[in-house]
Amino acid sequence: MNNAHAQEVSATGIPSGKLGIWMFLASEVMLFGAFISSYVILRTGSPLFEIPAREMLGVPLATLNTFVLILSSVTMVLALDSVQKNNQKGLSRYLLLTVLLGFVFLGVKAYEYHHKWAEGITLSSGLFGSFYYTLTGLHALHVVGGIVFNLYILVNALRGKYSSNHHERVEYAGLYWHFVDLVWVILFPSLYLL
């Protein structure tokens, strides 16, 4: 979608790009919702669903990762706030911070995977392992997607392509990133605390 299409106002009075990203997010709600529903049903109903001890789950690291994603959501919304005030430096700085925090999240997740695998929680070790890697893996893929999207926005920001009058794509990237944060807020207690 080029800039003209992204800003074009649809019959609803909303720019096509914004309507498109919200439609996409609604489909993502259904994707994650279907997986989480299956997890809830099997965990509640299946006698084969064994939960590993909390010590094996690594709650402190997952809590740290939750804080990292929440912080990245704040830097993302501050990036949008900066461009709305025509603050180009602020936009680039907060976008860069968001991208770096995304990498921190993935780094911690990779460390967690390594340790869990070594402790015997694998994809085929049981229902919990299957759901754990499917849900967190799918989420991590979305984080990777968000980092790529944000890097693209960052490169354009450094080229001075956004201003207070034209920053739609910064907003769309932000919507996607906040959604990724929101999904983790639900996955965290479901997989680590209950």
Partner: peptide, 10 residues
């Protein structure tokens, strides 16, 4: 319209 879209998904 955006609110209705998200509520429908939920």
């Amino acid at each position: 319209i955006i609110q209705v879209t998200l509520y429908t998904a939920l």
